[in-house]
Design a protein around this nucleic acid. Sequence first.
DNA 1: TACACTTGTAGTCAAATTTACCATAAGATA
DNA 2: TATCTTATGGTAAATTTGACTACAAGTGTA
Lengths: 248, 248
Amino acid sequence: MFNLSKFIVSMIENVDDKPALKSEQSAMNAITIDCVIFGFDKGSLEVLLVQHAEGISKGKWGLPGGWIYKKESTDNAAHRLLNELTGLDNIYLEQLKAFGEPDRFPLRRVITIGYYALVKREDYNIKAGFTAADAKWYKIDSIPNLIYDHNEILAYSLKHLRQRVRQAPIGFNLLPEKFTLLQLMRLYEEILGIEMDKSNFRRKILHMKLLAALDEKQQDVSHRAAQLYKFEPEIYKQLTEKGFNFEF
Amino acid sequence: MFNLSKFIVSMIENVDDKPALKSEQSAMNAITIDCVIFGFDKGSLEVLLVQHAEGISKGKWGLPGGWIYKKESTDNAAHRLLNELTGLDNIYLEQLKAFGEPDRFPLRRVITIGYYALVKREDYNIKAGFTAADAKWYKIDSIPNLIYDHNEILAYSLKHLRQRVRQAPIGFNLLPEKFTLLQLMRLYEEILGIEMDKSNFRRKILHMKLLAALDEKQQDVSHRAAQLYKFEPEIYKQLTEKGFNFEF
DNA sequence: TACACTTGTAGTCAAATTTACCATAAGATA
DNA sequence: TATCTTATGGTAAATTTGACTACAAGTGTA
């Protein structure tokens, strides 16, 4: 099987020895992209990390990343790298910021642009095509020591996510298409690290009119099945145009 | 007089002809910094622009910017450039994001990192040392066509400022040390483009306990002099640690 | 001095929202 | 049937918001 993460990481470490890319594309050589990929599984917020297979940091984990082709935008590069890693398209992806400490990369001066992505674990599990030895989901409260400044990038992205999730309904990108109100609440509780009241959360979120009740209920649960809802991007769009505030 | 903005801008345009920098420092060559410098004067939010003196975009205005030395962080580079331009230290400065469209710079592939700064106009007026022909404050509702993607960077920074100003009390950086509540309210009105109620604003902002009333009143006004206040960073720090929400 | 004018400051009150609860419903399981 | 778990609906007090009124403290002027 093609070992993707080894490929991605080795590109960076070996840049001084050989052409940066095995691809036909020519890439910029002082600037990279690193992605923090968030997932949500069984009540826990997780991050997808890849393992270094060779070089000075062999065996250590890091954020997936890579180089930017000269003819693509940085956003495109991030999408491309994400697709190469997970097989997913149309992922929610946003730039965080550039990380530019002069000594962040040991071999030479490389600035990296951090991105963060939110993926639905159900989609990911189906399409991902590499072994667990290469890439692995880590709970955010048990992240190992990462290469370079990747811990810093991760910490920043988490801080950013916590802020962002209060401003816009991006949390839905971490849930399945159909979800219950309690699932949604647990997601917010986990991301924000707070406890909420079921009943009040319910009233508040429904009052926003962002959710559409489906004609369906939860299946295979050993208790009363909850109503399933889906997120309505259309309505969100309408509301934001009128200056809408998404808060808890 | 040393023409600073000509210096700054020419560095970028002439990079193919000669060494990028007239300085002794060596700089990275595919990545720049551009700064959106906000000021607040007579009730209007303004931005400091510099004029191109030569090259293909002679006479056109743009954001002040420059190159990053190999041995300095991007944040340092932004502070240094800002200091070279305005003579100011300790300016409030934050990174926006990297702008990486492949054709944003016409001559070759250059990615720029956008920063935005908030300056007190009173400080600026004292120390700035170049002619009005080089650099000029523009009201945000009458920005001319700028070089490259600088209009886009400016638009993004404005959007960002509007969001940020609701999250954290950064607006104070645009006001003098001592200010009245009405001045502060006008600032928020201008930035957010809304109208507020004097009395309610007063109640709300004082309730946050972020302001300290000074033993001083406004001078030389032809009406009842208002109480002067100053911002208390200490208290803000305490409050943010407890999870504090700054909203209007 | 009296008066109008401007802005600052305090307070009121109804409406809306939040918070902390409680109560019941709807299943599943033993 | 009894019991357990989660879903869902509701209530009442506390708090916050928004619209508005009233008055205070100065300036400038007739």
